[in-house]
């Protein structure tokens, strides 16, 4: 640390200590599970729909056919999941700005949140963080068993203590900055489609 920086640091901390309030206790934070919905999958679907996200609940036996049918113009399909090849993998991008070439990106989320309709993604699932923001359309696989009730539960996920980057993503990019009218997209993905599909290892377990 440079001498100037150390001086500023110490001056700020001295001033904070001199002005700090008398110690107040930290409250106990409940998870409010008494108010949680009985059907988490339905609650998740309703929540994400309010944020312009789309949920596919029907079985999607052939991912490639689904993607080709849903996004007929897509040329570059980036797959960040092992069970589907796509046309490109995130590891192919040397510079993270190169992800802007992606038409559709497919990912798997380790957790959904019923209260908000959010899906969790981190650098572990994304490999290259920008794939989720520079791709035009996003498709996220989510095991319905991995939907938690609310945000209190969500922040207990180990990603938030282990991963350098994690995002609770809720619908496609949007903005209400012009005239207060909400439109999609703003700067990032134009659409977000969540396919409720058991994780591959879960399928094997039930098979």
């Amino acid at each position: 640390m440079s001498p100037t920086l150390a001086l500023s640091r110490n001056k700020i901390l001295d001033s904070v200590r001199a002005n700090q309030r008398a110690a107040q206790p930290m409250p106990t934070i409940p998870h409010f599970h008494t108010n949680q919905p009985s059907d988490l999958v339905t609650a998740f679907r309703e929540s994400i729909a309010r944020m312009a996200g789309v949920v596919v609940t029907e079985d999607v036996p052939d991912l490639d056919s689904f993607l080709r049918a849903t996004f007929p113009g897509a040329k570059v399909i980036c797959s960040a999941i092992p069970e589907y090849a796509g046309t490109i993998k995130p590891a192919s991008f040397n510079h993270w700005a190169e992800a802007s070439a992606i038409d559709v990106c497919i990912l798997r989320s380790p957790m959904g949140v019923a209260e908000t309709g959010s899906v969790l993604l981190s650098d572990l699932e994304l490999h290259v963080n920008t794939v989720a923001f520079l791709a035009h359309d996003l498709v996220v696989l989510l095991d319905p068993k991995q939907i938690v009730a609310n945000i209190h539960d969500a922040y207990e996920h180990p990603h938030f203590k282990l991963r350098p980057y994690s995002v609770l993503m809720t619908g496609p990019s949007g903005s209400g900055d012009i005239g207060g009218i909400v439109v999609h997209p703003a700067q990032a993905a134009k659409t977000l489609t969540v396919i409720l599909a058991p994780a591959p290892d879960a399928r094997q377990r039930t098979a």
Binding site: M51, F160, P164, Y165, T170, A188
Partner: peptide, 17 residues
């Protein structure tokens, strides 16, 4: 702020890539 349940992106940055 807006009456939404959450913002579209609620992101946690713990460190550099």
């Amino acid at each position: 702020a807006t009456g939404d349940t959450i913002t579209q992106y609620t992101s946690t940055f713990r460190g550099p890539r």
